[in-house]
């Protein structure tokens, strides 16, 4: 049982981070149907901003996280305005290629600007280990922090989407862009707002990743980004609760496969599950199967 609980906790920590990233993916997808491959790189930039704020300017951990959120939100909006907006009416593949281009640009620009070294992320949060049930369950303060921050962020997002005017407008735009426009919603502003919020979430994930794994590196965003995309699809892409569920599910599956079988086959298993899942229920965990109408 020890092993099971240990893996479960590892999986939940990892899953929380996937969920935070997947939220941004899924929001952007919901509103403009774009797989934003640059999302992982926005996370990386957020992580670096947090890193510099703490390591070079001695900022408080939470202040640094806030700063990272602002910086990433700004970057997200700039990317949207410069690279995606001109392509909004010219086919989704062109936008997809642009997203790949932006991703490559930020990765390699990061290598050029920040250097190729792995930078050590300061341990800006007290690290403690807690034990429960006679040591059967061991959990660190970082893992608790990640879970708490993730849950708070999700509640926050839920509040925005359900109760604020912007959130309602976001839902309207994702449901029907033209009708929303006719209702007097400024679609451009709402799309930018979506990018800003999604990118801010990525920044939180980035800072948490940096803290949890103690390093930041220009290529750190790519794989978590890809995995989070898988999580978003698992949950039903475009659906916010789906992204959370998908993130947690993916994290737990990864941890259990590594623990009970082998890391070597972990990614193979994860992607196999994904494909089987897609075949059985193509719209994801929370998606509704809707037949396409003529």
């Amino acid at each position: 049982m020890d092993l099971f609980f240990a893996q479960l906790i590892n999986g939940i920590s990892l899953g929380s981070i996937y969920a935070l990233i997947a939220l941004g993916y899924t929001m952007v997808y919901g509103i403009i149907q774009l797989i934003n491959f640059a999302h992982g790189e926005i996370l990386m930039v957020g992580a670096f901003v947090g890193f510099f704020a703490i390591a070079k300017y001695d900022m408080n951990f939470f202040a640094a996280m806030l700063l990272a959120m602002l910086a990433s939100a700004l970057l997200g909006v700039i990317i949207e305005r410069v690279a995606y907006k001109p392509l909004r009416n010219s086919g989704r593949l062109a936008a997809l290629i642009t997203a790949i281009g932006v991703s490559l640009f930020l990765q390699n620009g990061g290598l050029f600007v920040f250097g190729t070294n792995f930078q050590s992320f300061p341990q800006a949060f007290p690290k403690k280990t807690f034990q429960f049930l006679d040591g059967m369950i061991t959990i660190t303060s970082y893992q608790i922090l990640i879970l708490v921050v993730t849950i708070l962020m999700m509640l926050f997002l839920n509040y925005i989407v359900s109760y604020t005017k912007t959130g309602k407008a976001m839902r309207a735009v994702s449901y029907d862009k033209d009708a929303a426009l006719m209702m007097g919603i400024n679609v451009d502003t709402i799309i930018s707002a979506t990018f800003a919020i999604g990118s801010a979430f990525a920044a939180v994930a980035g800072v948490l990743l940096g803290l949890y794994y103690q390093t930041v590196h220009p290529l750190m965003g790519f794989m978590p980004g890809l995995k989070a995309f898988v999580a978003a699809v698992l949950g039903g892409i475009g659906i916010i609760p789906g992204a959370m569920a998908g993130g947690f599910l993916l994290g737990i599956v990864e941890a259990l496969v590594s623990g009970y079988w082998s890391t070597n086959y972990r990614d193979v298993v994860v992607f196999l599950i994904l494909i089987v899942f897609l075949i059985v229920k193509p719209s994801g965990l929370f998606g509704k199967d809707t037949g396409e109408k003529v």
């Binding site: 699809v233 193979v268 494909i275 897609l278 193509p282 396409e292």
Partner: peptide, 28 residues
């Protein structure tokens, strides 16, 4: 055969997963 029943981006992600599976198997 199976994923091509999927539409649009679901197919994209299924094929992406397949590419990673091939690579994962070759490594092992």
């Amino acid at each position: 055969l199976p994923p091509l029943r999927l539409r649009g981006d679901y197919l994209a992600i299924a094929t992406l997963g397949f590419g990673e599976i091939i690579r994962g198997l070759l490594i092992n």
